[in-house]
Design a protein around this nucleic acid. Structure first.
Length: 215
DNA sequence: CACCAGGCAAGTA
DNA sequence: TACTTGCATGGT
């Protein structure tokens, strides 16, 4: 918890909420793939403005038209297909009922989401944490970069290696995981680019300490 | 001008 | 299994 407390003391609570509805958070999880949230907001805004940020709206929109709406989020042709894949999955397995989807047990929900082309580990876990409110720790590029630069993990560690690091050292608490991830992103944005470490990083001085800081 | 952003799938060896 | 590449706009 020391890592958590340091970031919290430095930045304060982020009270992150990536969307007003479950479908908005799910769409946001896809649109933010390798993309800054600022650009995602424009794309989300376009979908809202057209009134198509819902299952039927996305289902009925041709992929090429959907792509134009989400253009600001980058990779728009790819992501238009991925959004439609996700919506088709909800339609086919849950009659288009998002609430029904989100009632699934965590493991079953995760399996289903991962079966959708375009939904990988991070996107699935983001949906589990933020839309389904399950105690799942989301790993992202910032998580890896921060821990790696501070000497806490090897270069080759993979997604699940990082995830179990947090899972095994923290209480299984959805609200904690939500805020923790938000603080990691905030801290990551403050890390100086091109430098190993940033002077203003709240975790400065952590080089080569061990992962006990998580407890 | 270069580089990066809350990834993922498909291809190669 | 372990790399590599395409996807693409917008900010610094």
């Amino acid at each position: 918890m020391e890592m958590y407390n340091r970031m919290l003391n430095h930045f304060g609570p982020q009270h992150w909420w990536p969307g007003e509805s479950e479908i908005e958070m799910m769409a946001g999880a896809v649109l933010t793939q390798n993309t800054s949230w600022k650009n995602v907001e424009k794309a989300i805004g376009n979908l809202k403005g057209k009134g198509i940020l819902n299952v039927e709206g996305i289902r009925n929109m041709p992929a090429d038209m959907l792509a134009e709406e989400i253009r600001p989020a980058g990779y728009f042709n790819i992501k238009a297909g991925r959004l439609k894949n996700l919506i088709n999955f909800i339609v086919e397995r849950y009659s288009g009922d998002v609430d029904l989807l989100l009632e699934e047990k965590t493991e079953a929900l995760r399996e289903g989401l991962l079966s959708v082309k375009g939904v990988g580990a991070e996107t699935a876990d983001s949906i589990l944490l933020y839309a389904a409110r399950r105690p799942v720790f989301v790993i992202d590029a910032y998580t890896y970069r921060i821990l790696n630069r501070h000497g806490l993990v090897e270069d080759q560690i993979d997604y699940y290696g990082l995830q179990s690091l947090f899972k095994d050292n923290l209480p299984e608490d959805e609200a904690l995981f939500n805020e923790f991830h938000a603080l990691i992103v905030r801290t990551g944005k403050d890390l100086c680019r091109g430098k190993p470490l940033c002077d203003s990083c709240p975790l400065k001085g952590w080089e080569k300490i061990n992962t006990a800081v998580l407890n």
